[in-house]
Nucleic acid binder design. Structure first.
Lengths: 217, 217
DNA sequence: ACTTCCGATCCTTGA
DNA sequence: TCAAGGATCGGAAGT
């Protein structure tokens, strides 16, 4: 009997792309289109792929999109893969080579996100086809190797607090640890904010001002 | 005080290579030579790297060395990385492209082994230097989740509210108009949020969850 | 991601 | 005890 087709779920934003067209020509694959909350391809319930052209990859570093995207992917799925199409070092864009190496190393070594490089959309499609088979037929049981269970809310909390003036990653974390939740941070008085180390008089009043500022129309 | 040097342990078989020479010129690194039982570089007690020139990589697929080497690396260390120097698809060696893709996919998707591709020995050295720092110190700082911020109060208010899940510019504005201030939005209950047009049941509960989620560590 | 730069915060001093 | 100084940290902007 004919082997059952593998289902690959593709985000609607990718539906027009050449890659996706190529993907549909694989008889082994059943291509479904959906609105994926994060990522571009779902190879199984556990494996998500974000695909970026080389230039996009560089841009997503520069504007910091990459980092939040990766955090979301890790939060939502047990295995996250970034697929880079083309040569990132060839995109002359003023970015330091060490910044690129840093980003790639960060993905692999720190975040544990697999990086897959491809030559062009056709290569990407072929690679996705194979990865889909591996993800669905080759994994089966050993998903356990990602240690801690994902906590997307931690990321979202930090994201929310980093919206405050003068709050970067470090101060955001301190505030959350001190107050215990986003809501507690946002209901704090200027004096309470002042108690957090790293937050001085000036910053405390700036934050408080934003929180209580009466919004006009 | 001066930061302590990072120790990278290099297998003796690699000691003569151009890569290793380049590695020794990094002032941040302290290069130790040893007889490593498996792999070519130890970035920390947990992270091992096997470095292969593109042609070697292809050969190790053909004669099945790759499979056992990876198994041994995984057995001995918690994180294994394969560094491929050069373009594997450029090595005309009769191997089918799909066999290469299969091997790369197998490493990433099934074995959970990170694959790092580099252009040449110098690129490899720079990459190893950065990976070593990441393996031993992590980033050493935290990365920002958002890009740069606006400065005027009303824009700042919107910006703060846009940190909530599913809140773009439009929804943020509606929430602010409805509640009157950032603080009021952040103290709202799920039911109150639901009253705002554009916010449905699902989004209301998501928002509420982020607000009240107890932050860990 | 990395680098550089600047201002705020914090910490030490010494009167 | 507190103010002024300098060392340190964290955020912003640019590549």
């Amino acid at each position: 009997m004919e082997p059952q087709k593998l289902v690959i779920r593709v985000d609607n934003r990718e539906s027009w792309s050449g890659l996706t067209q190529a993907l549909q020509r694989f008889t082994s694959l059943d291509v479904h289109f959906e609105d994926l909350p994060v990522g571009d391809f779902l190879l199984s319930d556990d494996v998500v792929v974000e695909r970026k052209a080389a230039a996009d990859f560089v841009n997503s570093i520069l504007d910091k999109r990459l980092f939040s995207q990766v955090q979301m992917m890790k939060a939502a799925y047990t295995r996250a893969i970034v697929m880079i199409e083309g040569d990132v070092f060839a995109t002359r864009s003023g970015i330091l080579p060490d910044a690129l190496r840093g980003a790639l190393s960060w993905l692999s070594v720190i975040e544990g996100v697999a990086v897959m490089t491809t030559k062009d959309p056709l290569d990407s499609a072929s690679t996705l086809a194979i990865m889909t088979r591996h993800a669905q037929e080759g994994l089966g049981y050993e998903i356990a190797l990602r240690g801690s269970k994902p906590k997307s809310l931690d990321v979202l909390s930090r994201f929310a607090v980093e919206g405050l003036p003068g709050c970067g990653p470090s101060t955001a974390r301190k505030l959350l640890v001190h107050f215990g939740s986003v809501r507690a941070v946002y209901t704090a008085s200027a004096e309470e904010l002042l108690l957090v180390s790293g937050v001085g008089k000036k910053q405390a009043s700036q934050i408080f001002e934003v929180l209580t500022f009466p919004f006009n129309s």
